Simulated assay, not measured.
Amino acid sequence: MPLLTIRHLTEYRYRQPVSFGEHRIMMRPRESFDQRLIEAKLEIDPEPRELRWLHDVLGNSVAIALFDRRARSLRVMSEVTMDHAPLAQGEVDVEDYARLFPFTYSSEDMPDLLRSIERQHHDPLRIVDNWARGFVNDHGATDTIGLLTDMATRIKRDFTYVPRQEKGTQTPIETLNLRQGTCRDFAVLMIEAVRALGFAARFVSGYVYNPSASEGRVGGGNTHAWVRIFLPGSGWVEFDPTNGIIGNRGLIRVAIARDPYQAIPLSGTWSGFPSSFLDMHLDVSVRVAGSDAMPAPLHGAINSRFAGSTGSA
């Protein structure tokens, strides 16, 4: 079980002091049987007058910061030490009734899965539907794990990963047409594609790291995005279409959501002159105990949002 230290720093700078409204911070990894937090600290400068924690509707840990001081910068740094128990593709077990596609979720699970099966993007010409159906065998049984694995690895193989610092996500149709995108674009495409086939799927935001020197990962140096799909027998299973990963090896969950806008690491408002904003700096590092190796120096898609009185910064 690897011991990891994760450091996530976001800093905004301004030409003159500005005031800050409420901020929501989602940088604390979710605790579970495969993710055990040993130590976690959150440092904010300027120091907020009030900091409180809550669990949102999907159980994500959210810190709410309120400020009463003006400043030329806002610096938020999360540092976590944790145990991580990787699950490999071969360890994914599926109930007999769900091993072949199509199948129907049990009556006990279906009421809680419906919103995760519900489509989020319009597809009037059935472009995403037809692409998804291309992974189904029309002349015999289709292996469920094989179908999902093929989709994740096909995105990695056929689509070009292109970092994009602008906020927002491409629609699945845009990603299919462009054949390129960020990790969050690929995650949204796969979510919509598997939902078109009746699977329950959720968006995941978190961190990616290289478990060993021989295993490269795209998306290091930043937050990362991938997909969780509910499979009877194993529950929610990770699929990372950017790296072609099945299982959680090299992936640390922070936020789980039906839609990317629910999983923003840092969001809030500021008030000042429109020209006040200078720049933003974002850095994420994951260190494996006993290894000097850091994540590959690749740039992921910035997920932080910082909306001010003059619009998005």
Rank of each mutant, 00 (worst) to 15 (best):
P297T: 10
S267Q: 01
M82P: 04
T144D: 08
V57H: 13
R13I: 00
G247S: 13
A196P: 07
R202E: 02
L4V: 10
S205F: 00
L58R: 14
N243E: 03
V204R: 00
V18N: 03
A255V: 04
T169A: 06
T153N: 07
W53N: 09
T310P: 01
D83P: 07
Y209A: 07
R157N: 14
V80F: 04
H23S: 12
M1D: 15
R70P: 09
L125F: 15
A296E: 14
N222W: 13
G247H: 08
A313K: 04
Y161F: 15
G250L: 00
D185V: 02
R70V: 07
L4D: 02
L282I: 11
P48W: 03
D185Q: 01
P29S: 08
V80P: 08
S212P: 11
L178C: 10
H224M: 03
R305C: 10
M1S: 15
H84I: 03
G146C: 02
A141W: 15
R99H: 08
E95A: 13
H84Q: 11
G168P: 07
S267C: 01
Q16S: 13
Y105W: 05
G244D: 08
S205V: 04
N137W: 09
S107A: 09
Q165Y: 05
R253M: 07
I246C: 00
G168Y: 10
M294Q: 08
D56C: 00
I245V: 14
M1Q: 09
E166M: 11
V162S: 11
R157P: 03
Q35D: 06
P232L: 06
P295G: 09
T310A: 12
L278R: 07
T81F: 00
A88R: 09
M82V: 00
R228L: 11
H224W: 03
N60E: 12
K167A: 04
T182P: 01
A289R: 11
S116L: 14
Q16A: 14
I246D: 05
G244T: 13
Q89N: 11
Q170E: 14
G221D: 10
L282P: 01
M294Y: 12
G216S: 11
D240F: 06
P2H: 11
R15I: 05
K167M: 12
V188A: 08
I302S: 07
I302K: 15
Q120V: 10
S304G: 10
C183G: 14
E39S: 13
A132I: 15
A200R: 05
I191C: 07
V57K: 10
D123V: 10
A296D: 14
D129M: 07
L114M: 12
S312V: 14
G59S: 08
I256E: 03
H121R: 12
R202N: 06
S214I: 05
V208Y: 04
R49C: 12
P241W: 03
A193V: 14
P124T: 06
P297G: 13
N222A: 11
S73E: 12
